[in-house]
Design a protein around this nucleic acid. Sequence first.
DNA 1: TTCCAGGTCCGGC
DNA 2: GCCGGACCTGGA
Length: 283
Amino acid sequence: MLINYTFPFSLQYTLESGQSFRWKKYCFNESLCYEGVVADNIIYLSQDLNSIRIESSGNSKLIKNHIINYLKLDEDINRVYKNISKDIYINSAINKYRGMRLLRQDPWECLISFICSSNSNIKRISKNIEDICIEYGNKIIFNGSERYSFPSPQILSETSEKQLRNLGLGFRAPYVLESAKIISLNQINLEDLRVKNYQDALDILIKLPGVGDKVANCILLFSLDKDEAFPVDVWIHRVLQEKYFDIENKTNNIKVRLLAQKYFDRYAGYANQYLFHNRRLFE
DNA sequence: TTCCAGGTCCGGC
DNA sequence: GCCGGACCTGGA
């Protein structure tokens, strides 16, 4: 099955940019192929000259729509570039990683993933998420691959801190458990945040345990269509200090975020993603 | 051995 | 309100 896309689009940059943690890279017929789990199905994706090739364990028409939505192919990336091209530094990052897109992930999975990201690294986060799925998700078999779905809020809320610590989550275990309880009781409805404005959605998300300003901005940017969201981590802080603003190492991250959002405006999140990727791969 | 990694939380000024 | 330290764990 094929999906056509408008240029520019890079599957590799998009799936390897640290937004999502469940894609595994393969080399197949001398081209890159990615295996992941989206909406309880195993998905294989690869990029041809004019289209994205999909194979999956699920109903093909449904999956096609899921993937168009997941890859956010409805976004006009050229309009984004036009908006964020403010200086030579961001332009150089755009030229290097042209076609890197933001995803529209499941906010629940995104929430747990970025709670797990706290004071960790991409390799370990990926392992934590995969272990959570293996332990509590449903087995999916397709084409010789065996993967597991991401468990529901109910399922995770019925685990225990000890069980989650045994999976290697460390001090993040109680945050995952308590957040799962809040979501499963529908005290916070993540999908409802999509129709709220950025600031209101942010104020709600940071009430969740383990979710501060940085993690909340990741969830807003990578799953809830808030293109102005701007997660400030050590890498972004470093770039902004080196290339943009007169700030100190210790300058409050929220102040830094507000400066950047004012500068890059409505698509600040895309600028963030290019600056992050560029700076992270530079070292 | 020590230090650090996509931060958050808590307690003391 | 702001600031510093603690926090699980695995890899360098």
